[in-house]
Design a protein around this nucleic acid. Structure first.
Lengths: 264, 264
DNA sequence: AGTATACACTTCCCTAGGGAAGTTGTCAAG
DNA sequence: CTTGACAACTTCCCTAGGGAAGTGTATACT
């Protein structure tokens, strides 16, 4: 029985039904902050769903949704019949995305794409295996260099299925296709893709193109895209010098997460 | 108007109420497969929630849950008042995890940790800034080399807050702490952490320790952990040669995802 | 003592709606 | 022709439960 406290700065203890924020998000924020403040520590059991219902005066379905949300975030874990528990931070659960990379593609006045090559070649063994075609079959080969403010930012090589009946060629050659791939809104033929990130050294050719000294570290980002028939459509890779890109991730509850909305 | 087709292998068209699989997951699989098969293409509008209710004979709440699930996956997007639409694949939505890294830490007979250094030093400027302490204040410095089958796998350096009143020292020095950090189950003092991944060259010292030729590309994984008082506790970085680690991710609907359960 | 059962507890999934809020198209009034 | 009201959609959030399934404990029985 807590006596009605002063509504401190952002220190919510009850669900405000008149708020524009949904109840399930408000509850998520309350629990998140309690975990962040150490009210519940890793390994501790959280109040049961029915307890939370009574405590905050909301229906089970809404509580359930909050629990699912926090479980998705990796903050808590649930075990049927036992309870829900606070998880300790796990490095292996950290995830990072390609948002930093997306910024590189952002088109503005300073951005410039130079198409170095675009021709039909015959597939070598590695390309043929990736694209699931016969060795020696014709494929489209493109090379391009992306610069920003006269400074080379990354180098892209790709092999595309050669199929005159399809307009994929122009779409892929187009500068905007890449940018659309990152920014979304491209209603393309691509259904599925796999990505692979490695760390690598620039080759001499790459170092020259990217105007970097040798040796120079870089990210190697490989992509392989499939169409709606589950056939490979394009395979290629980006070479991005180390000074142009880095990835960040977080684990656990950040202080900011607990204060701001933090919804999905 | 499709005429009732033969129930092909795994080609579910209705919700099976006797299945062990929840209805919302079955519906997610149905929609996922329809998207994968091109029944709904990027940009297309999906049937409305009430239509799905009638079509599959389930309640709105269950449909809602499916929609949320697929939206979380990034497969569809919803717009209030307009409808729900199939999204094209977006590279910027790809997420990479650190599971590959977790495997490196997996302790077995072949794994071996060599503690190269563990002593108290005074913080230089960079360390002091990261750990939010005074320049010159004492900190614990540790260096260790992790090998597998006699082959060096990564090199770790870290600076820890020097606080004799806390047992963090032993916990961090312990080999298992690292592994626990990845595998979970550590109910530690750590509340929050930030990670930073870059591509780098091995220094001469690192190359020698890791038994790699120079030059050699590597991942640089920096970590900064905070305790429950929001004070930095440890700062350090892993150096992982390029041949020991790579990250993978997928975008769009993979054929397997559409067939298997794929629920969370 | 050891075993089986019942009970209290948990999470989990689901029903069958109602109402708020946003979008779009229609249609009448100006 | 333009504008504004309105209806018909949509997604979104929520209620107030019920039942299934898993877990742990206390109790009764062999």
């Amino acid at each position: 029985m807590v006596k009605e406290p002063q509504p401190l700065f952002n220190d919510q203890l009850e669900i405000d039904r008149d708020s524009y924020e949904p109840a399930y998000i408000q509850l998520a924020n309350i629990l998140r902050r309690q975990i962040a403040e150490g009210v519940f520590r890793p390994g501790d059991q959280l109040p049961s769903e029915s307890q939370l219902c009574h405590r905050y005066g909301i229906s089970p379905m809404t509580v359930r949704r909050t629990i699912n949300l926090l479980a998705d975030e990796g903050l808590i874990s649930t075990a049927q019949g036992r309870g829900t528990f606070v998880k300790g931070i796990e490095l292996s659960e950290a995830t990072f995305g390609l948002r930093e990379l997306k910024d590189l593609f952002k088109p503005d006045q300073q951005a410039h794409v130079k198409l170095l090559d675009a021709r039909v070649v015959s597939a070598d063994e590695r390309t043929a295996r990736k694209l699931e075609i016969a060795c020696g079959a014709p494929v489209i080969y493109i090379r391009r260099l992306f610069s920003r403010a006269e400074q080379p930012v990354f180098y892209h090589r790709a092999y595309l299925i050669y199929d005159p009946t399809r307009p994929i060629v122009e779409a892929e050659l187009d500068v905007t296709s890449l940018q659309g791939l990152f920014a979304g809104g491209n209603h393309s033929l691509l259904k599925f893709g796999t990505l692979n990130i490695e760390s690598t050294l620039l080759t001499n050719e790459e170092a020259e193109l990217l105007k970097r000294p040798y040796p120079c570290a870089a990210f190697y980002l490989e992509h392989l895209f499939y169409d709606y028939d589950d056939h490979p459509l394009s395979w290629g890779w980006f070479i991005i010098p180390a000074d142009c890109l880095h990835f960040t991730a977080q684990v656990g509850v950040s202080p900011r997460q607990a204060i701001h909305s933090g919804g999905k």
